[in-house]
Design a protein around this nucleic acid. Structure first.
Lengths: 338, 338
DNA sequence: ATTTTCAGTGTAACCGATACCAGGTGAAAA
DNA sequence: TTTTCACCTGGTATCGGTTACACTGAAAAT
């Protein structure tokens, strides 16, 4: 079926296509009777302008790209949902790119987004050194980072929550319950969220006058299965910690599973606190105490900031650090021995 | 930063842009020395053709749109991941559209995808009567449906699993374990998956000579919370069923939670079987017996079929019905009384 | 009465590619 | 020596819009 073009509309109205274009763009210099007629004909033929033709001149297409490692990850799907909803209200479309954490894929996606003249790119899972990010920066397309930061964060727009503070709050909460033996189950070690959360962990311990004990630091990778197997090890060690701050909720849930498997009662015999507050954490059977990132809101805010910036052609970087929130549910309690 | 255009390359090479275009499109009629030079200059300037300009002529942009109700739903995120991965291997981009199950949003998204000249649209959560689908059909853009079908399915491309058979297999399995009082916890009633699964339920009961007892039919909506509250009702009724076929995994998990809350042992006192096999179902603490839809594969296959169809300009509808798979885990056992 | 202003519209160039047609070249065939 | 023809290459229209500029005629200003 042939698409209706601006020329078809113009012919039908006995005007030139520039006049139709003016109506399309709400130019004030159109006689109201002409405008009315044009609008009528447009409606009659159900006409919508071709965005590609428009974009060719404007060098933008009313679309953002969002780059995540894996949309299947509930953190990312919530974030993308937030971004997507905002895009919709601004009339923008959204390209979804999964990288699987691979730099080459990320670069490919970035190039393809640039080729498509997207108006902006949101990076949700950059690494500390990120070539894809560099590539995008060179292109001059507005960029915004959510959730995590690269090594050199200067000049970038970003929306994050204060991960250090979140870690601090989590561990402080455990300390306030009376815990002294507090373990840390990490995420991928050289990763921004892990580094920041671990710093919060250390600060809380230091302020409480507790020493950081290497035997209580466990290297995980944010996945359930790894956390499960590390969890079984933690539970079987001789001077077992009374509580574990897990670098993310998935890890916490893996640990929780290990506890169930080994008959260790949570929270009576083991307190567990996570980070992120993914939907799963609030399940009745899990009820994980955790630090909330307000993921959906973070995504929505990120989208909003970038889109506003595009509309106002504002090039000054907006850098937003949101406060985390402690969500107390049922996996933490005072330690038994105290 | 100004983008390099085909003209810049042509000038630098002292050839016309048609020649550059020929190189770009692998035309055989280019002297190999010329081609070499052009390719060098293209590489030197890191040139990539502007997809919008290209798309304006070709009337396509190398992108698909996928319409889901909510990417946060694990079923959809897996499906989209499968579609996205295939798109990537074919060099296509993917527009993500969330409708929240609202028809008006769906129509808006469809229109916007048409405006953007996407090459094809994949619908993942259409309704029985779907105006958005109609709108897309009128536009002539190739369409493919995954996961569920509309009332009139003629002429559409689709990839689904046999939901009726899945329901049949699930219930048959319960029957084979010795269950006679088998309840059905439905999804949204007038919905394709629910209708088909319920039909499977009925067929299995009929073939086994069991009557369909209205008091064992419960109307849910695919959500955890509804299933939980219905679950508590089911567990407290006097002539309680010994097993429940839940229309999806989320409902099954809601019921599972209700059982835990009320101290009903699963599977000893209550057998539960779900449908979908979302990742959550295989968690160690859940171990839900269910009917697998191979969601990721379904998405990948759907994407592949549509993309192949686009490349071959094949207009005959491909209609694929995949077999479901029974995944036996730990929530089903023979009933106590037998 | 003459000039200025400006609302309302058309013309044509342009965005960055593709595609068709035609022209030029040189080697092989006549 | 001329013709033929395959092989390259350039010119130009085109896709569907936007936009700078020019033009018209009527109202406002002088």
């Amino acid at each position: 079926m042939k698409r209706i073009t601006i020329e078809d509309i113009a012919r039908e109205c006995n005007v030139s296509k520039s006049t139709v274009s003016r109506v399309l763009n709400n130019s004030p210099h159109v006689k109201s009777s002409t405008r009315k007629k044009v609008l009528e004909v447009m409606k009659k033929y159900n006409y919508t302008p071709n965005i590609l033709a428009r974009g060719l001149i404007a060098k933008k297409i009313g679309a953002l790209g969002v780059i995540v490692s894996d949309i299947t990850n509930p953190f990312h799907s919530l974030l993308v949902r937030g971004i997507g909803d905002i895009c919709r209200t601004y009339g923008y479309s959204l390209f979804l790119c999964n990288t699987d954490g691979r730099v080459d894929e990320e670069i490919k996606h970035v190039r393809s987004l640039i080729q498509r003249s997207v108006d902006g790119i949101i990076f949700a899972s950059i690494k500390l050194k990120d070539e894809g990010l560099e590539e995008a920066k060179k292109s001059g397309i507005p960029i915004l980072l959510v959730g995590r930061l690269p090594e050199k964060e200067e000049g970038f727009n970003y929306v994050i929550v204060d991960n250090e503070l979140g870690g601090y709050m989590a561990v402080n909460y455990l300390i306030s319950l009376g815990h002294r033996k507090i373990a840390y189950l990490s995420g991928p070690w050289d990763t921004w969220p892990n580094i920041r959360r671990f710093e919060g962990y250390k600060r809380a311990l230091e302020e409480a006058g507790l020493s950081i004990d290497k035997k209580y630091i466990f290297k995980g990778d944010f996945t359930l299965d790894t956390a499960y197997s590390i969890g079984t090890k933690i539970l079987m060690m001789r001077d077992r910690p009374t509580s574990v701050f897990c670098a993310n909720d998935m890890s916490a849930i893996g640990l929780l599973e290990a506890c169930m498997e080994l008959g260790v009662k949570v929270p009576e015999e083991m307190s567990i606190i996570g980070f992120d507050d993914i939907p799963l954490s609030s399940f009745r059977t899990i009820q994980l105490t955790t630090v909330s990132q307000s993921i959906y809101d973070q995504g929505a805010l990120a989208g909003k900031i970038l889109l506003e910036k595009l509309q106002n052609e504002d090039n000054t970087p907006t850098q937003l650090t949101l406060p985390p929130k402690l969500i107390i549910r049922k996996t933490c309690a005072p330690p038994k021995e105290v």
